[in-house]
Design a protein around this nucleic acid. Structure first.
Lengths: 147, 147
DNA sequence: CTTGATGTAACCAAAATGGTTACATCAAGA
DNA sequence: TCTTGATGTAACCATTTTGGTTACATCAAG
């Protein structure tokens, strides 16, 4: 509820979450709780746990239950790229084709789908290539630099 | 209502629309109506007119009113890239920052915004670079090839 | 057992996306 | 001048996505 923008903030929150855990662990703590993270992110703990559930399935984070429970990184910050995070949490592509099938009798209606799919594949590839360039270690460095 | 995907179809519909007009004009017609285009796209004419209104403001299409009204391209298909179309119709960036301001007392909460903004700027740039590679002439060629 | 956290379902509010109806406006041509 | 067929746009609605919230079963250390 900030600007006139659409877009989702999941990648931002997920990067924030993992970076927070990484820094917390470097400061000597074993695990971080969803409550602590939620405070930093300024949202509800359940939102964090939902995200971490996906990050966990993707092999980026691990949880510990029982007493002294919480979350830890499954890999070092330097070994996690934003592409890893993106793939763990984003369900679909950026652009979609028609929601209703276009007229197959029309030349354009018939051929536009495959044509745009080819373009979108290239766009997604470029997007992934770009996200792969940045690790969470890079993000943390930027974060600390800004402090 | 097709798959489990999010994403919007505006770029697809806009490209479809302009390509359709271009082909129609090459076949000797002066203008195309939103009704004809809507039939090919399989949607409501108003959806097409709304899109064309934006494309018109961006200098990609022009309309004629009164009797014999309709739409025409403002530039040749070869002079319109998908980036032009994208910029004409997409309001915001692909990724968003936090919807609520993160904790400014926290190092991560404080520095994550600028850090992610830098990344997102690069991602958007890559996306634009990729979209700029394809003209509507290219799209039409692919469309006709598939026929 | 007690305790404090995870894991997840369920529900809700707000926003985005498209579809639909309605109608004022325009300009060519009869 | 009037008829006509299309644009331009507001208004409303249904569906989906996105996040926030409550609730509660489950787990494991001490």
């Amino acid at each position: 509820m900030e600007s006139d923008v659409s877009a989702n903030s999941r990648l931002t929150i997920a990067a924030h979450t993992l970076t927070w855990i990484g820094l917390y662990q470097r400061r000597g703590h074993e695990v971080a709780t969803s409550e602590q993270i939620a405070t930093s992110v300024n949202t509800n703990p359940v939102v964090i746990r939902r995200l971490l559930a996906k990050l966990s399935k993707a092999g980026l984070a691990d949880s510990r239950r029982g007493a002294g429970a919480g979350w830890m990184l499954a890999r070092d910050l330097a070994a996690i790229t934003l592409l890893d995070v993106y793939q763990a949490i984003e369900p679909g592509p950026v652009f979609a084709l028609h929601r209703a099938t276009p007229d197959p009798e029309c030349v354009v209606g018939h051929g536009i789908g495959p044509a745009m799919t080819a373009v979108y594949d290239d766009v997604e590839a470029a997007l992934r290539r770009e996200l792969a360039k940045t690790t969470l270690e890079d993000v943390l460095r930027d974060v600390l630099k800004a402090a």
